[in-house]
Design a protein around this nucleic acid. Structure first.
Lengths: 213, 213
DNA sequence: ACCTGAACACCGTTCAAGT
DNA sequence: ACCTGAACACCGTTCAAGT
């Protein structure tokens, strides 16, 4: 049919279809031909709107990050509570699209939402009295923890096959295979415990660096 | 030449060559044909020793994790110091092979070293008096943080092209493009700050959960 | 400007054939 | 048992051709 009078595709439609496909069938289901088929066009058509396949996935990942709630950094919430609320919103945004997390992990790429996030955290921490160098590190630290927990949690977990390991090799993990079942609870618990420890630890540092001196 | 009298390949040789190739040229340089060429054989030969390409990369990743020093969990080091030493050794092991980190992030797969690690941490924390549920969470929390920081640090960082973002979009990150340059320092600082906060926060929790009650 | 089919240079993996 | 070349069913991407 060659060129239609009204474009069949748009960046928005492509990104939405890519994210839907990732959600439904996982990252490896996304090939340019498959994605194009999903959109009712042929493979090369996508290259009229994006330079590469990775750019498409970057844009999809950006829409995920863009749903993270940053309003707590702007509404007078105390810094420690704001960090905790942000971390929970961040985790929830990733949990809503677990299959794209491993792609996100491959590097920030060209994703403006990540920068907006870094900017909001940095501004709020400096506003709360943290020295700029600390503000940068705090934002990064929280990202590390949330990203790491998302990977550990949502990326497929421990081997489900109990025969995969001999309990004698892991004296303390006698029922380790149960972890596959109870994984979600372990992960949620670890996230809560770690988040609390991080925030409390930063509170101690704040007393020393900002309130003290 | 068909079958040689002495095998040309072994799992060890394949894994070593795979890790060397990942280190030298990155994950995407590893194709079965390329890896086989590096070993002086043809592509399909690898399938006599591994079922899939991912199994090869899993084995390579396992050798990386296997270099993490777990001795601090067995030599009477106080639990908090042991956790910190382990985290630093873990980070150092990943930093030595930065290009394999994104693969590691795709899930634990079949990597016994990861289980040995979880077992050692769990055993030491329980030995220090932590309730088992907490011991599990602490191990996971630390893994989240180290893995997240490795991804944030070693996976290629912020966009290096200053034109990629308009400073007006990120009011607090005026010289954000400098982050590319100073990234290593920021990452190391964030790791130190985060690790300290985590350990200190866990210390508070310990006082409440174990020492108190 | 935006879509198409054909084509290029790859992939991971299977398999029959060789020793 | 362990290697080979040929083959299958794919890839991401380019490009000339069509409107």
């Amino acid at each position: 049919m060659a060129r239609p009078r009204k474009p069949l595709l748009s960046r928005e439609r492509i990104v939405a279809a890519a994210l839907a496909l990732v959600d439904a069938e996982g990252l490896q289901a996304v090939s340019t031909r498959r994605l194009a088929a999903e959109l009712g066009v042929s493979g090369p058509s996508l290259y009229n709107h994006f330079a590469t396949k990775d750019d498409i996935l970057d844009a999809a990942a950006d829409t995920v990050i863009d749903r993270v709630d940053l309003s707590v950094f702007d509404d007078g919430t105390p810094w420690a509570d704001a960090l905790a609320a942000w971390a929970r919103s961040y985790r929830a945004a990733l949990a809503a699209h677990p299959h794209i997390v491993p792609f996100l992990a491959q590097g920030p790429g060209r994703r403006p939402a990540g920068l907006r996030q870094a900017d909001a955290v940095f501004g709020a921490m400096v506003g709360a009295g943290w020295p700029p160098a600390h503000a940068t590190r705090i934002g990064a630290t929280m990202r590390y923890f949330v990203a790491g927990s998302a990977l550990g949690s949502f990326a497929r977990g421990f081997v489900d096959d109990p025969d995969a390991y001999d309990p004698r090799d892991y004296p303390h993990l006698g029922q380790a295979h149960l972890l596959a079942e109870h994984r979600r609870q372990v992960d949620d618990g670890a996230f809560d415990t770690g988040l609390r420890a991080l925030i409390d630890g930063l509170g101690l540092l704040y007393a020393e660096v900002v309130a003290g001196a």
